[in-house]
């Protein structure tokens, strides 16, 4: 674990690392909630594996900012900088897959840019490693989107509902994050094209409706979250907070 944040290095890259680290931490937690009751044993393995990749990314990113455990377990809800998309409860498997599709496509494109970009040098090595993992996550989400979209009537309807329900949280993904040298407009265009392409192959279409309302566009990045997130943190932080100063 690294030392407490040093004001001299608590620069823009640190703000970026915090945002991306919180995204990975929170989504990892949500995916871990599936463990032991996935629809098929292979998915217990896959979802846990993705959760583990994300947890690894979170630990690396948060360690750039400060002590990973202090950041994960001792911050209040309003201090978390993750997008609201990743904190949304799992819902059914289609809802989880819709969240995975939206987020993994975003993360792959974002890390791709960071890995290539010189200005964000502090995050480039991490991004170069993570983008390879995320490519698998995206493929996993894509393969399931095809199966659920083009499977049965039930699965199609559930996938549709998952995509629609989470759509309002996708606008926030493209709000510039301080300290990340990313072409956000290009990122959004590529995201729409990629997600739209997968959905078309899955006999689905991009949802319609607003995705930039005041409560979901940029709110998570500013520390405003949704109600279920507080309960998630209560569970996640309870044991650590119950034993102040203890080592685990």
């Amino acid at each position: 674990m690294s030392a407490a944040p040093d004001p001299a290095t608590a620069d823009l890259a640190t703000a970026g690392a915090l945002a991306l680290g919180d995204d990975a931490l929170v989504l990892s937690h949500r995916l871990a909630e599936w463990t032991g009751h996935a629809p098929v044993l292979e998915e217990d393995v896959a979802l846990a594996n993705i959760a583990l990749d994300l947890l690894g990314q979170a630990r690396t990113l948060l360690s750039l900012v400060g002590d990973e455990d202090e950041l994960a377990f001792l911050r209040e809800e309003r201090a978390f900088r993750n997008v609201q998309l990743v904190e949304q409860p799992n819902g059914d498997f289609a809802h989880t897959i819709a969240r995975q599709l939206y987020f993994s496509v975003y993360q792959e494109l974002l890390y791709g840019q960071l890995a290539a970009g010189g200005e964000a040098a502090p995050l480039a090595p991490l991004a170069a490693k993570a983008v390879k993992e995320v490519a698998y996550h995206r493929d996993h989400a894509e393969q399931w989107t095809l199966r659920l979209g083009d499977g049965t009537e039930t699965s199609h309807a559930r996938m549709r509902a998952g995509l629609d329900g989470l759509w309002r949280y996708t606008g926030e993904l493209f709000r510039p994050v301080e300290g990340l040298a990313v072409d956000w407009a290009a990122l959004e265009a590529a995201w729409l094209e990629t997600v739209g392409g997968v959905l078309e192959r899955a006999t689905l279409t991009l949802p319609e409706g607003p995705r930039a309302t005041g409560w979901s566009a940029g709110a998570g990045r500013a520390g405003v979250h949704t109600e279920p997130f507080g309960r998630m943190l209560a569970e996640m932080q309870h044991l650590h907070r119950s034993h102040p100063g203890a080592s685990w």
Binding site: E43, L146, R147, L148, G151, T152, S155
Partner: peptide, 11 residues
């Protein structure tokens, strides 16, 4: 998970 396995089989 039955509906998920059904969907994969149908696909």
């Amino acid at each position: 998970g039955a509906w998920v396995r059904d969907a994969a089989a149908a696909y």
